[in-house]
Simulated assay, not measured.
Amino acid sequence: MAIQAWFMQESDDDQRLPHHKNPPEFVSMEQLADLGVLYWYLDPNKYENDPELDNIRQTRGYSYTDLLDLRPEKVENYEQKLKNFYTEHIHADEEIRYCVEGCGYFDVRNNDDRWIRILIKPGDLIVLPAGIYHRFTLDTNNYIKLMRLFVGEPVWTPFNRPQEDHPARKDYIKGMIEKIGLEVH
């Protein structure tokens, strides 16, 4: 099963809508991989005891996990949290999320500074590289249960755009230039 991704239509409508262009412009797994986005599909019914997940964790050094149950009745200051997640930012480390229930969207910027919307559903494990501009929102069902994975102790510090001088952003841009020889914004 492959993840679904597409170029977004810029709009002030509800951020939880799909925001497809007309006609839709889908993005392939190869295009996401070119941006450093990694993806696995796992069985979400086995997330508590999955040898495949254990193998990914061991191989990539993900030593810490927790679960985030994101819905209005479970999260204090829900609207503010969603607003914070949807503010464009980077992290100094990878962002690793495994959807075990519900749905949501990760938006990432491509090399032309266009938004790509990535739908994550149960079973989708996604890794966003350190330094990539991104944001997150739920879909209109207002519910997602995510496993968050970290290398070492959990750190979730967003650095809101602009962050062109942040070391993680500089490393990301340098890697993109070396990888594909393109100018990255």
Results as ranks from 00 to 15, higher is better:
Q163S: 11
Y78W: 10
W156Q: 13
D93T: 10
G131A: 06
W156A: 14
G102I: 01
D107L: 10
T140F: 06
V151Q: 14
G131M: 03
P154T: 14
D139Y: 09
Y105M: 02
D139G: 08
H89T: 03
R161W: 07
K74Q: 08
V100A: 05
R97L: 00
R97V: 00
L149H: 00
D113Q: 02
C103T: 02
D93C: 09
Y133C: 00
R97I: 02
D107G: 12
N142W: 14
Y143S: 11
A92C: 04
E76N: 12
V155M: 08
Y143Q: 11
E164S: 15
Y172N: 00
T87W: 01
R114Y: 05
F150D: 03
Y105T: 01
G131L: 04
D171N: 15
K83V: 09
C99L: 00
F159I: 05
F136I: 07
L119C: 01
E164D: 13
E153D: 14
W156K: 13
Y105W: 06
H134Y: 07
N141M: 13
P154A: 11
R97H: 04
E88L: 03
V127R: 10
E101S: 04
R148D: 01
K170E: 02
D124H: 08
L125C: 00
A92E: 02
I96L: 12
G152A: 04
R161M: 09
A168K: 07
K121T: 06
K174V: 13
I177N: 13
G123Q: 11
L125Y: 01
Q163G: 08
T140L: 12
P129W: 04
F106K: 03
R135K: 09
K83P: 15
I116E: 03
D139C: 10
T87Y: 05
K174S: 13
R114Q: 09
K81M: 15
R97F: 01
E88K: 06
W115G: 00
L146C: 05
V100F: 06
P129Y: 06
I126W: 04
G175T: 10
I173S: 06
T140C: 07
P129V: 04
G123E: 08
I126P: 00
G102H: 06
H134K: 07
E164H: 15
V155F: 08
Q80H: 15
G175L: 08
P122T: 05
D171P: 10
I177S: 14
R169C: 01
K121Q: 10
A92Q: 04
Q163D: 11
C99G: 00
P122R: 06
T157K: 13
D124L: 06
V100H: 05
L82P: 13
F159W: 11
L146K: 03
A168N: 10
V127A: 07
T87C: 03
F85K: 12
T140G: 08
D171T: 08
F85V: 11
V127I: 15
A168S: 15
E94T: 08
R169F: 01
P158K: 09
I90D: 01
Y172G: 00
T87M: 04
T140V: 09
D165W: 15
V151W: 12
R114W: 05
E76C: 09
